[in-house]
Design a protein around this nucleic acid. Structure first.
Length: 870
RNA sequence: GGGUGCUUAGCUCAGCUGGAAGAGCAUCUCGUUUACACCGAGAGGGUCGGGAGUUCGAACCUCUCAGCACCCACCA
């Protein structure tokens, strides 16, 4: 299929029309298709980040994704086939949350499937959420994500990203589930997985376990509560300051520093926990710091991570009072771990707390403490940082539950070593990775008590009483994958045995979304059905805020599965800051939508803006740069249009083998400048430094428009001159190719309209070769000095005219150039052009040999310039 | 508390292994209608965050101080 532009460029540049033409041309020609027949050496393999489809794209996505696309386009033009997949990250909590809000529904797994339920957009509805079955909920997720994905796809196509849309995956798709489950089975067989019941960080909003990487600190308002703990059998007491008095019933130890003179006398004695009269020992440990709070603290199950460590270390009984919903459980004092010297009084107090949320319980218990004279003083306000799930809005709790863990803590050294085999760009991002690895203090909890995600390929046997045997999980056979244990049966069982004594149950949890995302290279290969490619890929582009998740987990999995690095290089993009230097994000409400910007400035201009920023450098959102990009696009169009007109009126019209006509010294000098530009740009691209490449190209392009084009204009009009025309053709041809990765639309439009295209030539510019040094063999060593000299003289004459307030078209009566003989001889080679561009009258130019000047020094004396005609 | 990066013109940013401070925008002046008003020519504007050191020579190397941003840890 051929490109639909007219042969000549239209008078006005119509960007939306050009963009539409290009999009359909590329789609119909498979311009960006990955060629599986090429060897690995001839392939550039990218591990594209699948964007989360749980909302709208913002300009930050466009920014970093475009930078990758520029790199991909360069690689494609330099002769490689590019493996450039695109995926949508649609599984997991962000989607569930969006679905809950969008349809005003929530999942209740105990409900039966309702085949007639159709989710409807109901975001304004403030009534309680309608409860739907697990299957209905998953269907609602699928409905919404697939419509979200169309929006994303359109924006990415509108901005001109050159993905191979045939290699598309979603993280909830069957391929992703299969790969994730294979990964699970492989790690299980390698002994890297364990199912464990232990206190885990728990988000009460979403009611799921979460991993260390998803924890975020937040500053919140709280209170110090100074509580009197009576010493058992005395009238004495110690005052303990705590921010979480609701944990009093779960107190297991009282701790002070061994050197603390204030408390030495109490070690070994017991306190009676206020209200509950539980005897708890006062222990000496450097776990406590003397200068914090009152220097003496209570340990509860579990106020924080330190409490968990203490509990594990001491082996004291567990007093679990927080339930999965974040509310206080109904426990009874005098039973189990809940000892009391006065169970009746303890239960009386506790009954007022049971069922309350932690926040409500805190208020209630403060009231009870006050009424019973346990408060040493009124609560003192403080701001402190508390751990949150990054997507949650209530502090994390530590709750005991059964979860799947991947062993990571024993692999810190190996992970650091793997990280060092990867080339990080910018380099310092590697430190961030290593710091995270070294600070790792938990294994990776990969199970989530949610619904829309990858199920575990696991069932559990039930004994004759219907109790599950978690010690011996039954894993799916690889041939069964993808599998849903809530629907499919383990081998050797029938559906009728589900939930029955001596039967089985399926694992109802889903995997952490990162357990899937950490396999994006493998998932992309699965989607492409590629047998040629494998790990490592060439590059992983990503943002720095997910080094501890996406990069880290991907490196971990590649190491555990294949003992390799997942990619040779990782390119970390910066993020977009709003003009106040704050990070742009949806939650802050300062996001500008990409489509609006594309409509305003055109896709190429937005790409220009993104390409100007260097990798890893945060950039302020600056619309003026996009306006600048639009000027560049306009200039490319107009300069090309002008050259095309010249070509069409010349003897070289329709000649594709024009390069040999470049014979004039000035034209050759100019071509050597172009050659130097290509060389520099190529070198920059070899280290993925697209920004420097663009800088070099753009500078030379403006020089072309402002100077070279003006200099040779007159000569190019002359019908007998071929050198100038050929040089202009060559120049435009080269600029189109080097601008192509940055501005694919305007360059394609212009390229397709070039009058020197062979009639059969219907190839997209983006499948054309990046300029190769062999094309410039004859001028590789040519001297650009003549061009510099002519430019310098031109500039001087222009300056003189501006100073005289006259038009640049004013004819100069007399100009004297002083320079050493060598320079004069050089300059004389460009005499005609100097005269043309400067409006010098015949014989107006004279030369003075000035041996005292250096070779590059040229002095110009404009002695007679006409005054401005009034 | 630990780490990383940044600080250059009014703004946004370049400036490679040390060798006469740069671009774009903005401002001001002038010009311009046969590629382009999404135009052109020019001008002004900086003690390169402060201080010390190394060097013939420092925006660049070393030390130090300050400010900004981000990451990690701690948080009774």
């Amino acid at each position: 299929m051929s490109y639909k532009s007219t042969k000549s460029l239209d008078n006005r540049m119509d960007l939306p029309e050009i963009e539409n033409r290009c999009k359909s041309f590329w789609a119909e020609n498979n311009t960006y298709r990955y060629d599986n027949s090429r060897s690995r050496e001839e392939t550039f393999v990218i591990d594209t980040p699948p964007p989360t489809v749980s909302g709208s794209l913002h300009i930050g996505h466009i920014f970093s994704y475009t930078q990758t696309d520029v790199i991909a386009r360069y690689q494609r033009m330099s002769g490689k086939t590019v493996f450039y997949p695109i995926g949508w990250d649609d599984n997991g909590l962000p989607t569930e949350r969006r679905v809950q809000n969008y349809y005003n529904i929530t999942c209740n797994p105990s409900l039966p499937y309702d085949p007639n339920f159709k989710p409807e957009h109901n975001e304004q509805d403030k009534s309680p959420r309608k409860e739907v079955s697990r299957k209905n909920f998953i269907e609602a997720c699928e409905t919404l994500t697939s419509s979200d994905e169309i929006v994303f796809e359109n924006v990415f196509k509108n901005i001109g990203h050159s993905y191979d849309w045939n290699i598309k995956y979603t993280t909830i798709g069957a391929g992703s589930i299969k790969v994730s489950q294979e990964s699970f089975i492989d790690l299980y067989e390698k002994g890297e997985l364990h199912l464990m019941e232990s206190p885990t960080m728990w988000d009460v909003t979403f009611q799921s376990a979460i991993a260390q990487a998803e924890v975020e600190d937040k500053e919140i308002q709280g209170f110090f509560h100074d509580i009197k703990f009576p010493i058992e059998g005395t009238d004495d007491y110690v005052v303990i300051a705590t921010t979480r008095p609701e944990f009093l019933p779960a107190c297991i130890s009282i701790v002070a520093h061994p050197d603390d003179e204030r408390y030495k006398k109490y070690f070994g004695k017991k306190v009676l926990v206020p209200l509950f009269d539980t005897p708890v020992e006062i222990v000496a440990s450097d776990h406590a710091e003397m200068d914090k709070g009152t220097g003496i603290m209570m340990v509860c199950t579990f106020g924080d991570a330190a409490d968990v460590a203490w509990w594990k270390q001491t082996g004291l009984p567990l007093k679990q009072i927080i339930g999965l919903d974040g509310c206080l459980l109904d426990v009874e004092f005098g039973k189990g771990a809940f000892v009391s010297n006065n169970p009746e009084r303890a239960n009386g107090f506790y009954k007022q707390l049971a069922g309350l949320s932690t926040k409500q319980a805190r208020e209630k218990i403060v009231q009870l403490l006050r009424e019973n004279n346990y408060l040493a003083c009124e609560p003192r306000p403080l701001t402190h940082t508390v751990k949150f799930y990054e997507k949650g809005n209530l502090p994390l709790e530590f709750v005991t539950s059964r979860q799947w863990f991947i062993t990571l803590q024993d692999k810190k050294d190996a992970m650091v070593a793997m990280g060092r085999k990867i080339k990080w760009k910018p380099e310092h991002m590697q430190y961030r990775y290593e710091e995270w690895v070294r600070g790792l203090n938990q294994d990776w909890c990969i199970s989530r008590q949610r619904f829309f995600g990858v199920p575990f390929p696991v069932w559990y046997k039930l004994d004759d009483k219907g109790n599950a045997d978690y010690e011996h999980p039954m894993l799916a056979d690889r041939s069964q994958l993808p599998v849903d244990p809530m629907i499919d049966c383990p081998k050797g069982y029938t559906e009728a045995q589900r939930g029955q004594p001596n039967g089985f149950i399926g694992d109802k949890d889903i995997m952490d979304t990162w357990a899937t995302s950490s396999l994006t290279p493998q998932i992309a290969l699965e989607a492409a059905e590629s047998d040629k490619l494998g790990l490592p890929f060439d590059i992983r582009p990503q943002a720095h805020d997910i080094i501890r998740t996406w990069a880290f987990y991907t490196i971990a999995k590649a190491m555990m599965h294949e003992n390799t690095i997942p990619w040779k290089e990782i390119l970390i993009s910066g993020c977009i800051l709003d003009p106040d230097r704050k990070k742009m994000s949806k939650s802050k409400g300062n996001v500008v939508t990409p489509q609006h910007l594309i409509d305003t400035y055109g896709a190429d201009s937005i790409r220009y803006w993104a390409s100007r920023a260097r990798l890893g450098v945060d950039t302020a959102f600056e619309e003026q740069i996009m306006a600048q990009g639009k000027k560049l696009v306009n200039k490319i169009f107009n300069a090309s249009k002008f050259v095309f007109t010249i070509v069409e009126n010349s003897k070289l019209n329709g000649v594709s083998d024009y390069r040999k006509f470049i014979t004039e010294p000035l034209d050759k000098a100019w071509q050597s400048k172009i050659y130097a530009m290509v060389k520099q740009a190529t070198e920059s691209f070899s280290t993925h430094d697209y920004a420097t490449a663009l800088d070099v190209i753009e500078k030379r392009f403006w020089d072309f428009c402002d100077n070279y084009l003006e200099i040779v204009k007159k000569r190019a009009y002359a019908p007998e001159d071929c050198s100038a025309v050929a040089s202009l053709m060559e120049t435009i041809d080269t600029f189109l190719r080097v601008f192509a990765p940055f501005c694919p639309f305007i360059t394609e439009e212009v390229y397709q309209a070039r009058p020197w295209a062979a009639a059969t030539d219907k190839v997209s510019l983006h499948n054309v070769m990046w300029p190769q040094s062999s094309e410039y063999a004859d001028i590789a060593n040519a001297d650009g000095a003549l061009y510099d000299a002519v430019s310098a003289i031109t500039a001087e004459i222009r300056k003189a005219k501006t100073a005289a307030n006259v038009s640049q078209r004013t004819q100069v009566q007399k100009a004297v150039i002083a320079a050493p003989d060598a320079s004069l001889n050089l300059i004389k080679e460009g005499l005609v052009d100097i005269r043309n561009v400067c409006g010098l009258q015949e014989n107006a130019l004279s030369f003075v040999s000035a041996a005292e000047l250096a070779v590059n020094d040229i002095e110009l004396d404009l002695t007679e310039l006409p005054q401005k005609a009034s």
